[in-house]
Simulated scan of single mutants.
Amino acid sequence: MTDLTIETTRFREWAGGGLGPREGQWECDYSQWPAWHRAVLDWVVGRHPRGWSEAETGHVLYAIARDNDAQYLVREIRKRRPGTLRFLARAALAHGESDARWQLAVELGHLSGDDEAQALLFALSTDRNEYVRRRAIRSLAGLGVRAAEELAWAAWHRDDEDQEWARMSALECLRELESPRFDALLAEALQDTRPFLRQHAERLRAAVAQKSGRSDPAFESEA
Protein backbone atom coordinates (compact mmCIF):
# COMPACT_ATOMS: atom_id res chain seq x y z
CA MET A 1 0.00 0.00 0.00
CA THR A 2 1.43 3.39 -0.98
CA ASP A 3 1.89 6.32 1.39
CA LEU A 4 -0.71 8.19 -0.68
CA THR A 5 -3.31 5.51 0.03
CA ILE A 6 -2.29 5.17 3.69
CA GLU A 7 -2.46 8.89 4.47
CA THR A 8 -5.68 9.40 2.53
CA THR A 9 -7.28 6.47 4.36
CA ARG A 10 -6.14 7.91 7.70
CA PHE A 11 -7.83 11.20 6.94
CA ARG A 12 -11.02 9.51 5.78
CA GLU A 13 -11.12 7.49 9.00
CA TRP A 14 -10.58 10.62 11.07
CA ALA A 15 -13.23 12.53 9.11
CA GLY A 16 -15.73 9.71 9.52
CA GLY A 17 -15.19 9.50 13.27
CA GLY A 18 -16.87 12.79 14.18
CA LEU A 19 -20.33 13.17 15.62
CA GLY A 20 -22.91 15.01 13.55
CA PRO A 21 -22.46 17.06 10.39
CA ARG A 22 -19.24 19.00 9.93
CA GLU A 23 -19.39 22.72 9.26
CA GLY A 24 -17.02 25.48 8.24
CA GLN A 25 -13.31 24.80 7.92
CA TRP A 26 -13.47 21.50 9.73
CA GLU A 27 -10.57 19.99 7.79
CA CYS A 28 -8.19 22.41 9.54
CA ASP A 29 -8.60 20.42 12.76
CA TYR A 30 -6.76 17.44 11.30
CA SER A 31 -3.37 17.11 12.99
CA GLN A 32 -1.60 15.00 10.35
CA TRP A 33 -1.69 17.42 7.41
CA PRO A 34 2.14 17.53 7.00
CA ALA A 35 2.31 13.76 6.48
CA TRP A 36 -0.59 13.85 4.01
CA HIS A 37 0.95 16.77 2.13
CA ARG A 38 4.24 14.89 1.81
CA ALA A 39 2.53 11.72 0.63
CA VAL A 40 0.53 13.52 -2.06
CA LEU A 41 3.43 15.60 -3.37
CA ASP A 42 5.86 12.66 -3.34
CA TRP A 43 3.33 10.74 -5.39
CA VAL A 44 2.76 13.58 -7.85
CA VAL A 45 6.46 14.31 -8.34
CA GLY A 46 7.52 10.68 -8.56
CA ARG A 47 4.99 9.27 -11.03
CA HIS A 48 3.60 10.33 -14.39
CA PRO A 49 -0.20 10.60 -14.17
CA ARG A 50 -0.61 8.29 -17.18
CA GLY A 51 0.31 5.49 -14.81
CA TRP A 52 -2.16 6.40 -12.08
CA SER A 53 -5.19 4.27 -11.42
CA GLU A 54 -8.62 5.84 -11.13
CA ALA A 55 -8.48 5.31 -7.37
CA GLU A 56 -5.09 7.04 -7.10
CA THR A 57 -6.33 9.99 -9.13
CA GLY A 58 -9.31 10.11 -6.81
CA HIS A 59 -7.03 10.18 -3.76
CA VAL A 60 -5.16 13.22 -5.09
CA LEU A 61 -8.35 15.07 -6.01
CA TYR A 62 -9.86 14.25 -2.61
CA ALA A 63 -6.75 15.61 -0.85
CA ILE A 64 -6.88 18.82 -2.91
CA ALA A 65 -10.56 19.26 -2.09
CA ARG A 66 -9.96 18.82 1.64
CA ASP A 67 -7.01 21.26 1.49
CA ASN A 68 -9.34 24.04 0.32
CA ASP A 69 -8.44 26.41 3.16
CA ALA A 70 -4.64 26.43 2.74
CA GLN A 71 -4.70 25.54 -0.99
CA TYR A 72 -1.14 24.34 -0.50
CA LEU A 73 -1.34 21.12 -2.48
CA VAL A 74 -2.79 22.54 -5.66
CA ARG A 75 -0.34 25.44 -5.61
CA GLU A 76 2.65 23.14 -5.16
CA ILE A 77 1.45 20.80 -7.89
CA ARG A 78 1.20 23.73 -10.29
CA LYS A 79 4.72 24.85 -9.42
CA ARG A 80 6.29 21.40 -9.60
CA ARG A 81 4.21 19.62 -12.24
CA PRO A 82 2.03 21.94 -14.37
CA GLY A 83 1.29 19.05 -16.73
CA THR A 84 -0.15 17.09 -13.81
CA LEU A 85 -2.24 20.12 -12.87
CA ARG A 86 -3.85 19.98 -16.31
CA PHE A 87 -4.38 16.23 -15.97
CA LEU A 88 -6.10 16.73 -12.61
CA ALA A 89 -8.31 19.47 -14.03
CA ARG A 90 -9.47 17.12 -16.79
CA ALA A 91 -10.17 14.43 -14.21
CA ALA A 92 -11.97 16.87 -11.90
CA LEU A 93 -14.27 17.94 -14.73
CA ALA A 94 -15.38 14.32 -14.96
CA HIS A 95 -15.68 13.32 -11.31
CA GLY A 96 -14.00 15.79 -8.96
CA GLU A 97 -15.58 17.74 -6.11
CA SER A 98 -16.33 21.43 -6.56
CA ASP A 99 -13.75 22.19 -3.82
CA ALA A 100 -11.11 20.67 -6.09
CA ARG A 101 -12.41 22.22 -9.31
CA TRP A 102 -12.38 25.82 -8.09
CA GLN A 103 -8.83 25.50 -6.76
CA LEU A 104 -7.68 24.03 -10.06
CA ALA A 105 -9.37 26.92 -11.86
CA VAL A 106 -7.38 29.39 -9.77
CA GLU A 107 -4.05 27.68 -10.46
CA LEU A 108 -4.72 27.22 -14.18
CA GLY A 109 -4.93 31.00 -14.27
CA HIS A 110 -1.19 31.12 -13.57
CA LEU A 111 -0.33 29.18 -16.74
CA SER A 112 -0.10 32.05 -19.20
CA GLY A 113 0.34 31.22 -22.86
CA ASP A 114 -0.98 27.69 -22.26
CA ASP A 115 -3.74 26.82 -24.73
CA GLU A 116 -4.81 23.68 -22.89
CA ALA A 117 -5.08 25.56 -19.60
CA GLN A 118 -7.32 28.12 -21.27
CA ALA A 119 -9.48 25.38 -22.79
CA LEU A 120 -9.88 23.81 -19.35
CA LEU A 121 -10.81 27.19 -17.89
CA PHE A 122 -13.49 27.64 -20.54
CA ALA A 123 -14.89 24.23 -19.57
CA LEU A 124 -14.82 25.18 -15.88
CA SER A 125 -16.53 28.50 -16.68
CA THR A 126 -19.69 26.52 -17.51
CA ASP A 127 -19.49 24.37 -14.37
CA ARG A 128 -22.70 23.53 -12.51
CA ASN A 129 -21.25 25.16 -9.38
CA GLU A 130 -21.34 28.96 -9.29
CA TYR A 131 -18.12 29.38 -7.33
CA VAL A 132 -16.22 27.19 -9.79
CA ARG A 133 -17.59 29.26 -12.68
CA ARG A 134 -16.65 32.45 -10.88
CA ARG A 135 -13.05 31.44 -10.26
CA ALA A 136 -12.61 30.16 -13.81
CA ILE A 137 -13.86 33.42 -15.32
CA ARG A 138 -11.63 35.42 -12.99
CA SER A 139 -8.64 33.36 -14.11
CA LEU A 140 -9.48 33.92 -17.78
CA ALA A 141 -9.78 37.65 -17.16
CA GLY A 142 -6.46 37.61 -15.33
CA LEU A 143 -4.89 36.00 -18.38
CA GLY A 144 -6.31 38.79 -20.53
CA VAL A 145 -8.60 36.47 -22.51
CA ARG A 146 -11.14 38.76 -24.18
CA ALA A 147 -13.86 36.10 -24.17
CA ALA A 148 -13.96 36.46 -20.38
CA GLU A 149 -15.85 39.72 -20.94
CA GLU A 150 -18.84 37.87 -22.40
CA LEU A 151 -18.65 35.25 -19.67
CA ALA A 152 -18.65 37.93 -16.96
CA TRP A 153 -21.55 39.71 -18.66
CA ALA A 154 -23.51 36.45 -18.76
CA ALA A 155 -22.71 35.75 -15.10
CA TRP A 156 -24.08 39.18 -14.17
CA HIS A 157 -27.42 38.38 -15.81
CA ARG A 158 -27.70 34.75 -14.74
CA ASP A 159 -30.26 33.94 -12.05
CA ASP A 160 -28.47 32.25 -9.17
CA GLU A 161 -28.79 32.17 -5.39
CA ASP A 162 -25.19 33.44 -5.24
CA GLN A 163 -25.73 36.18 -7.81
CA GLU A 164 -24.61 38.91 -5.42
CA TRP A 165 -21.14 37.34 -5.32
CA ALA A 166 -21.19 36.51 -9.02
CA ARG A 167 -21.87 40.17 -9.80
CA MET A 168 -19.04 41.34 -7.57
CA SER A 169 -16.69 39.03 -9.45
CA ALA A 170 -18.08 40.12 -12.83
CA LEU A 171 -17.28 43.73 -11.97
CA GLU A 172 -13.71 42.78 -11.11
CA CYS A 173 -13.32 40.93 -14.41
CA LEU A 174 -14.72 43.78 -16.49
CA ARG A 175 -12.51 46.26 -14.69
CA GLU A 176 -9.42 44.12 -15.23
CA LEU A 177 -10.23 43.76 -18.92
CA GLU A 178 -10.95 47.51 -19.19
CA SER A 179 -14.32 46.64 -20.68
CA PRO A 180 -16.57 49.44 -21.95
CA ARG A 181 -19.39 47.64 -20.14
CA PHE A 182 -17.82 48.22 -16.73
CA ASP A 183 -19.16 51.74 -16.10
CA ALA A 184 -22.79 50.80 -16.77
CA LEU A 185 -22.70 47.77 -14.50
CA LEU A 186 -20.84 49.68 -11.81
CA ALA A 187 -23.60 52.33 -11.84
CA GLU A 188 -26.20 49.58 -11.56
CA ALA A 189 -24.36 47.96 -8.66
CA LEU A 190 -24.15 51.27 -6.81
CA GLN A 191 -27.96 51.32 -6.76
CA ASP A 192 -28.37 47.67 -5.82
CA THR A 193 -30.23 46.83 -2.62
CA ARG A 194 -27.84 43.99 -1.74
CA PRO A 195 -25.38 45.47 0.77
CA PHE A 196 -22.21 43.54 -0.08
CA LEU A 197 -22.54 44.21 -3.79
CA ARG A 198 -23.22 47.90 -3.22
CA GLN A 199 -20.28 48.25 -0.82
CA HIS A 200 -18.01 46.44 -3.26
CA ALA A 201 -19.12 48.78 -6.03
CA GLU A 202 -18.36 51.79 -3.83
CA ARG A 203 -14.84 50.50 -3.21
CA LEU A 204 -14.33 49.90 -6.92
CA ARG A 205 -15.57 53.40 -7.76
CA ALA A 206 -13.12 54.90 -5.28
CA ALA A 207 -10.26 52.77 -6.62
CA VAL A 208 -11.01 53.75 -10.21
CA ALA A 209 -11.19 57.42 -9.26
CA GLN A 210 -7.88 57.22 -7.40
CA LYS A 211 -6.17 55.48 -10.31
CA SER A 212 -7.39 58.09 -12.79
CA GLY A 213 -6.47 60.96 -10.49
CA ARG A 214 -10.07 62.14 -10.21
CA SER A 215 -11.94 62.80 -7.00
CA ASP A 216 -14.87 60.58 -6.19
CA PRO A 217 -18.01 62.78 -6.05
CA ALA A 218 -19.45 60.57 -3.34
CA PHE A 219 -16.54 61.37 -1.05
CA GLU A 220 -16.60 65.06 -1.99
CA SER A 221 -20.27 65.30 -1.00
CA GLU A 222 -19.48 63.83 2.41
CA ALA A 223 -16.66 66.29 3.11
Rank of each mutant, 00 (worst) to 15 (best):
G96S: 07
Q199R: 15
S215G: 14
F87W: 09
I137T: 05
E76T: 11
L124P: 06
A15M: 13
R101A: 10
M1R: 14
E172V: 08
V60F: 02
E130V: 07
D42E: 11
R80L: 14
E56Y: 06
A207L: 11
L190H: 05
A201E: 06
S215P: 12
E150D: 15
Q163L: 11
G18A: 12
A117Y: 00
R66K: 10
A94F: 11
L197K: 05
A65Q: 05
G144R: 03
D183E: 13
D216V: 08
P49D: 02
R194Q: 12
Y131D: 06
I77F: 00
S139L: 07
G16T: 04
V132C: 04
A55E: 13
P180E: 07
G16H: 01
E23W: 12
E220C: 10
Y30N: 00
A15I: 10
A94G: 14
S169V: 00
G144T: 03
S53T: 09
V74M: 02
T193W: 11
G58V: 06
A147E: 10
G213V: 06
H37V: 11
R38K: 15
E107Q: 10
I64R: 00
W153F: 13
Q210R: 14
A89V: 04
E150C: 10
E23D: 15
T57M: 07
E54R: 12
R135D: 00
R158F: 05
A201N: 04
A89T: 09
Y72S: 13
S112W: 09
R128W: 08
H157S: 13
A39S: 07
E116V: 06
T5V: 14
D162F: 02
R101D: 08
I77Y: 00
S179H: 02
F182K: 00
R146M: 11
Q191S: 14
L140N: 01
S179I: 04
D29Y: 08
L104V: 06
